[in-house]
C-alpha cells in the first residue's frame, strides 16, 4: 500500500513542497485521465476539516481515498488541476497506466482493512 499526493499540511493549510515531488510532470491528456481516475477513489476516512490551499482558499473536505493499492488525500485532484507543473510519483503513474486507468472494485472487507491500516498509521 502506497501513499501518493500527500503534500505538506500545516493545520488546515496544504502547502506545495516541490522537493518531495520528484517524478513525472503530466501532459494534458494524462493529467485528465489521472484526475478522472482519482475521482473514482473510495473513501476510507472523512475528516471534519476543509482543506485550504496555501492562500487560505477552501479546497474541499479532507477525505482519504483509495483504489485498493494507493492512498491519497482529497486535495490531490485539486492541486493536479491547478498546479500544472506538479510532479507525480512515477510509480503511481505507471501503475494506473498499467490498469488502463480503470479502477478495480474494492470489497467492503478490503476497505475496512485499509481503514484499519490507515488509522493505525500503517499506510
Amino acid at each position: 500500500m502506497n501513499r501518493v499526493g500527500f503534500l505538506k499540511e500545516e493545520l488546515d493549510k496544504v502547502i506545495i513542497v516541490p522537493e518531495i515531488h520528484l517524478g513525472t510532470i503530466l501532459d494534458d491528456d494524462l493529467r485528465q485521465k489521472t484526475i478522472d481516475y482519482l475521482s473514482k477513489g473510495r473513501v476510507i476516512l472523512s475528516y471534519m476539516e476543509i482543506s485550504t490551499d496555501e492562500l487560505g482558499n477552501n479546497i474541499a473536505p479532507l477525505e482519504i481515498l483509495t483504489d485498493g493499492n494507493w492512498v491519497w488525500p482529497s486535495y490531490f485532484q485539486f492541486f493536479l488541476k491547478r498546479k500544472l507543473n506538479l510532479r507525480i510519483d512515477d510509480e503511481f503513474i505507471n501503475f494506473i497506466r498499467s490498469k488502463d486507468f480503470v479502477m478495480d472494485d474494492i470489497s467492503t472487507d478490503k476497505l475496512k482493512e485499509l481503514q484499519h491500516l490507515y488509522l493505525n498509521k500503517k499506510i
Binding site: L38, S39, K40, V43, A60, E63, S74, F78, Q115
Partner: peptide, 18 residues
C-alpha cells in the same frame, strides 16, 4: 464501516464539492 457509505464513489471532487 457501513456498506452504503462506501458504495458511493466520490465522483469529481472539485466539481461536486469545491
Amino acid at each position: 464501516l457501513q456498506n452504503d457509505l462506501f458504495g458511493v464513489a466520490l465522483g469529481g471532487l472539485e466539481g461536486s464539492v469545491a
